[in-house]
């Protein structure tokens, strides 16, 4: 039993290490993506600055707070979408490289496979977001003196559980449809961006979209981190939010693995587990 656990742990690290090797080889592309992430976040920051130039400032409108609100949304969305897409592309990536058959023939549990990919995505996403954050702080003089960083990190950590569950659910799509699955992953990500309150409060959305927003874990992750970074909510204040996120993770992770197992069986029955689909 211990031997099996140790070999699964080795395989988990193997998947994370393989991703590291692949990213190292594609380092120029990663620089391009980093540039894109920085540009995206800066655009949102300057959009907020532009609101002041357009006369939005004054009265109860706090331009500084609005800018921080949008920047936090952009930074977190950059991070969450990276983790989401890395895990969601776990299968699509194997198909592109032509290794899907080899990986699925390895004596490794699927939970190990997918968790190994998620592990790398989380670490890499944090590193990349940290770089973008440093650039944003330097350009916009972001003031975190009222922020409670521990509270924000606490919510961020809790948000990983439902995010991983959602990502595994999405990674099923390329198994169901080798040709259209990847594009469907983008559609899911776009919908999450729309309903999760990344750049605006949920209250501005029509009711049906608000309802979708309330069941999106990203809504709670973003709202929780904003209250810590903007209003100084402490770890204690964030317990209810973290509880919701962990409860969502407790549902979404087993659901994700259950759906993945079903999709893998279906793919084996239909002969879809091959590079060309």
């Amino acid at each position: 039993m211990i031997g099996v656990r140790s070999s699964e742990m080795g395989a988990l690290l193997g998947f994370a290490e393989r991703q590291l090797y692949v990213y190292r080889r594609y380092w120029v592309w990663e620089l391009v993506w980093l540039f894109y992430s920085i540009v995206s976040v800066l655009s949102i920051g300057f959009l907020a600055s532009g609101l002041g130039a357009l006369g939005a400032e004054g009265g109860t409108f706090d331009l500084r707070k609005a800018q921080l609100y949008l920047l936090i949304g952009a930074l977190l969305w950059g991070y969450l979408s990276l983790v989401f897409m890395e895990a969601a592309y776990a299968i699509a990536w194997e198909r592109w490289e032509g290794t899907i058959e080899y990986t699925f023939m390895a004596p490794v549990r699927r939970v190990t496979h997918l968790m190994g990919i998620c592990l790398f995505a989380i670490v890499y996403g944090l590193a990349r977001t940290f770089v973008v954050l440093l650039v944003a702080i330097a350009i916009f003089n972001i003031d975190f003196t009222h922020a409670n960083i521990a509270g924000a990190l606490f919510v961020l950590a809790a948000s990983m559980a439902p995010l991983v569950g959602l990502a595994i659910l999405t990674s099923v799509l390329p198994l169901l449809s080798p040709q259209k699955g990847e594009q469907m992953s983008f559609a899911v990500q776009g919908f999450m961006l729309l309903v999760s309150g990344v750049y605006y409060p949920l209250s501005v959305l029509p009711l049906p979209l608000q309802a979708a927003g309330w069941i999106s874990p990203l809504t709670y992750a973003l709202s929780g981190m904003r209250t810590s970074l903007l209003d100084g909510a402490t770890v204690g204040d964030q317990l209810p939010t973290a509880g919701i996120l962990l409860a969502m993770g407790a549902v979404l992770i087993p659901l994700g693995f259950g759906v993945f197992t079903w999709a893998e069986r279906r793919a084996k029955r239909l002969g879809l587990l091959k590079r060309s689909g």
Binding site: G3, S6, S7, G10, A11, L13, G14, E17, R18, Y21, V22, R25, Y26, E97, G98, T99, E101, Y102, T103, A106, P107, V108, R275
Partner: peptide, 20 residues
């Protein structure tokens, strides 16, 4: 079936980890 951007060593160490 290899990761074409990776070296034989990187591909083989990956395989070795999967097979313990």
């Amino acid at each position: 079936a290899f990761f074409k951007e990776l070296s034989p060593w990187e591909n083989m160490v990956y395989a070795s980890r999967l097979y313990g």
